[in-house]
Structures are given as C-alpha cells and as structure tokens.
C-alpha cells in the first residue's frame, strides 16, 4: 500500500494557483530551510533517495499539514538523529550542542559553487542487460510497492501500477531508488521512459490522444503482448 506523497491522480485538491516568477521565496525562513538542507546533505550521511524517503515517512497527518519547506525541515531533523549527527537532547535543547567529528566534512562557503555545479549523477555501470527497446509493449507491476522492503521507497506511482504502455526511450542504467533509499547499494539497472495512453490510467481521460510518460526501472516492468 502506498503513502500520502503518492498523490498523482487524486481528486479534491482544488485549483492550481499560478504565481509570478518573483518573489521566489515567500518567507525568509524558506531560504534558510533550503540552504540548511543542502548544506547538511553535503555532510554525506545520506543520499537523495534516503532523504526523499525520510520526507515520505513523515506521519500522514504531518505530511498533509506541513508546507513544502516544513516537510524538508522535519525530515532533516529526523535524518540528523537517525544518522547520529545530532542527538535527541541536542535537538530538544536539553543538552548543549557538542562539537561533532563530522565537522571535518562541513561545506565551506568557498566550495558552495563547485558543489552545486557538480551535482550527483545517478547513472552507474550495471551488469543488468537492457531487456526492452523503444517501441516495446510493457506492463508495470500490478502493485506499486518496494519488492525489497515492506513499506519501503519506490518510484512507481500507484496510479501507474498494473498499466500497459510502450517504451519511448532508454536512459541508460541508473541507481535503483528502491535499494538506495534503504542503504542496500546502488543496484543500478536499465531505466526507460514509458508512455501510457491516458485511457489506460484514468476512467475519464480528457482526450483520446493524451499520454502520460514515466521514467521506470526495468524491474518495475514486464513484457506485454
């Protein structure tokens, strides 16, 4: 079964409210939340899949009521304690913050430009051979679930589970989030863009020619007739 973040196709959220290109941040603390999250990530105690999963693991009531950057802050606090970078007593103010040996990895102001410009590519060499080619008919897993960890992270949204589509393009071999989010290694495997007719996903598609494209790992897919 899925979690609250997996909201594609959900009803009841009301209109999308467009915004001008500026201002980018709507409160001073938003900027700080963004920067602290990126700086703490540079300590190297977790990867992007672990941090996504930490946000997804917020209690459903918190995920629903927190704004975007509140989710980031809550997940960051949880990760800092989980990885031992900060103690619960330091977080609550019951203990004075003690200097950390991890401080050797602190992101220096002078290195910010380089770190942001370097990023973290997700393509890796893999021994898993591509099973599909563009044009092939495929079907997704019938249930959108992590096959390695019950209740774990996956990037197959529930709305696209058990659906038939066709491979549009091959992206190469990429880190498998279902493994990486649980520190089970990169487990890189072929990744494809797969196109699904809207009529395959929705009971009342808006238009007969509309499609939804998802990037899906090979282990999410089976051949379809």
């Amino acid at each position: 079964m899925t979690r609250l973040h997996d909201m594609g196709g959900r009803y009841g959220d009301g209109p999308v409210v467009p915004e001008p290109e500026q201002p980018l941040f709507h409160a001073p603390w938003h900027k700080r939340a963004l920067a602290i999250t990126l700086a703490a990530g540079a300590l190297g105690k977790w990867n992007i899949d672990v941090s996504r999963h930490a946000r997804e693991c917020l209690a459903a009531k918190d995920y629903a009521r927190f704004s975007y950057y509140e989710k980031w802050m809550a997940a960051l606090a949880d990760l800092l304690v989980e990885t031992g970078a900060v103690t619960r007593d330091e977080l609550s103010g019951q203990a004075a913050p003690a200097p950390s040996p991890l401080g050797a990895k602190r992101l220096a102001a002078a290195d910010v430009a380089t770190v942001l410009a370097t990023g973290g590519p997700a393509d890796r060499a893999s021994t898993v051979a591509p099973r599909f080619s563009p044009g092939d008919a495929v079907a997704t897993r019938p249930i959108a679930a992590n096959m390695l960890v019950d209740g774990g992270h996956t990037r197959l949204p529930a709305y696209a589970a058990g659906a038939r589509g066709r491979v549009l393009r091959y992206h190469g071999t990429h880190v498998l989030p279902d493994a990486s989010a649980h520190r089970l290694g990169d487990a890189a495997e072929p990744l494809y863009a797969v196109a699904f007719p809207a009529s395959e996903l929705w009971s009342h598609p808006e238009h007969p020619r509309d499609e939804v494209i998802l990037d899906l790992w090979q282990s999410y897919l089976e051949p379809a007739a």
Partner: peptide, 13 residues
Amino acid sequence: KGLVDPAALDAII
C-alpha cells in the same frame, strides 16, 4: 556543532 557554516548558507541562497 560545526556541521554548517552560516556563510555557506548565504552562498547557497
């Protein structure tokens, strides 16, 4: 704790 440099936060922003 020495884990974050406020000047680095300013640079990110």
